[in-house]
Design a protein around this nucleic acid. Structure first.
Lengths: 195, 195, 195, 195
DNA sequence: TATGAATGAGAGTTCATTCAT
DNA sequence: TATGAATGAACTCTCATTCAT
């Protein structure tokens, strides 16, 4: 967000990594600050030198998760071939969001966000930028005749994200990979764009 | 499920109602057993006469949530007009799943399910029955020429549920109702069924 | 104690048996009234129709334990052959007191007695009668020249009980039977009586 | 045992002292962790920084109790005059084990040990070393002609400890000091060693 | 007698956080 | 930065007991 980013202390990253591991294994609320510090090999007090607290750690993770969307956004902006761009996005984002670690962290962040404005903001902002990029790509494609033309491209973009993320979340309860549903979802979304 | 169900003690229902209210307001982990008991107007110890514990309460809620799907399932089974049935389901399920209380409880149950087999089972079972009913309806519609014919109707049914539930979940972070996205989603899904 | 003993309700005995089983398995304090009632197949409330409470159950057990000493006492009173009587007592009491169930219950009762006068009384009374009988036997034997003559036969009787019971208690921590120590103890005690 | 013992935090000792006082006054199970912390003038949470829990405190006490046996053990090893060493041991150990605080703690630890392997180990280990030392002394005495020669000196050592500890335990229920029994016990044990 | 729902104090333990070193 | 002892409120759950039925 800001260009005045100061270099991040390596210890801070170690703590975040440890926190992610803990959250994935036991969930956000089941994880204690002690657990994080222990797994990071850091003293309990020192964790508070790097973060505002447990919540601060989660907010930082949400920030990072958001940064990981930058790749998708970049690929969708100014696409040479909108249809290919969309298809690649669907493929890639479905894979990204179905990774257990991403799905699990996402839902932990989501639930926390409903009660925590600070985290909710980070979350919403990230998502907004992704929707913009996707909507932009849909518009470009519509202009070039590659897709049908939609009144509200942002709404369609939302539908795509909802569907893909809904799918990712469900993959949490289904331990086994279900490729058939995944394929069905992708083709369903792409078919929905035809003129 | 079973016909040998013994009548449920009214106090048990009072406790569940109180728990739902608490969970919605503050979240599962932020809610203490004492909070539930207090809101239910029941002594702390007595709560444990009716439930195995906090987790037991959530499991019971999951069971109830599942029972609420029975209406949708019934409407999808043996449909006179498959297309109308599907459309009504989409409309109704989107509304159901976008109600904050349902969405919030659903995500709480989902996260808990990833760590708690007992709850996961209830959850998975309910969903499975809904998918069956939806897939069945798609098949009937395909045979009557109302829909396109799909290789794997369960997969398509999954796509529908994923999309609708994904939409419901997202409505959590967006406090304002967004009807336009909701409408876009519905028409997108229905369009996807055309021959 | 009293000759006006009314017949004991069979349910009462079932409860006592269940309580003994629970105490042996988990200890007095680790056993809940619920556990006892459950194991006895009796409702929780009904247990309080038969006993004054958890403590009442233990007091009753202490009483029964005391009654079991009656056999030893009888054999020591008015002995034809004091030496044989003593030897048989040592043999029998060592066996009795080394039975894990007796040892364990004994120590539970003992600890409880240090803080609970009611139980302490039952306990002390039982022991007193046993010491009397043993001392009496020692006196008879001394008069007949079978044993050495002691100034304070009750003190010697105490020594015998202390040693035997101490041995029984220790058998608690040593899971394996140690017959060699047991034999050594017996011969040591008997040797101590020689003129 | 080990020379690599790190220095014990003084607060830890304060807590142990408080715990001992509480256990003596009210018994192990009747004492709450809060009581210990309060008596030690320590916050509840901090107690858990120093001990694994209530059980951990008891285990530590058991360890200390064991260490107190070191004096007896030292006096029995390599004795100039075995008879005098034994007599002094009997005298001293009888006094030690009849101190209400030692007897009470001992029996609390004993009962807990029957259900708690960790504590049982500490307990058994301590006792074993004491038996070894006593048996050793008996052997030395037998060789020098001071005592009768026993086949199994460890068994005789056990008899001594059983008798002395049994005596100590019983002194719990008898609030008044009974010196006569105590004297009878000692002379009985010593007489048992004569050739 | 017999039942089990109801009570609420109390259990042991963990929590996120602070702060003197 | 880094440490870990210190805090005390909060946690879930169990307890022995009572009482209306």
């Amino acid at each position: 967000m800001s260009d005045t980013e100061q270099p991040i202390h390596p210890r801070k990253l170690e703590i975040v990594e440890a926190a992610v591991a803990c959250f994935l294994e036991n969930g956000y609320h089941q994880t204690g600050v002690r657990d994080i510090a222990a797994k990071a090999g850091v003293s309990l007090g020192n964790l508070y030198n790097h973060f505002k607290g447990k919540e601060g750690v989660l907010a930082f993770i949400a920030q990072i998760e958001g940064a990981e969307l930058a790749g998708f956004i970049a690929a969708l902006s100014d696409p040479a071939d909108p249809r290919a761009a969309i298809e690649q996005f669907i493929e890639g984002y479905a894979a990204y969001v179905s990774l257990p670690e991403n799905a699990l962290l996402g839902v932990e962040i989501l639930t926390e966000a409903t009660r925590n404005p600070a985290i909710a903001n980070v979350f919403a902002e990230n998502r907004d930028r992704l929707i913009d990029a996707l909507a932009h790509c849909l518009e470009v494609g519509a202009r070039s005749g590659a897709f049908a033309s939609f009144n509200d491209t942002r709404a369609v973009a939302c539908v795509f994200l909802d569907a893909l993320e809904g799918h990712g979340l469900r993959s949490l309860s289904l331990k086994n990979e279900d490729h058939t549903t995944s394929k069905a979802l992708k083709s369903f979304l792409i078919n929905g764009l035809r003129c």
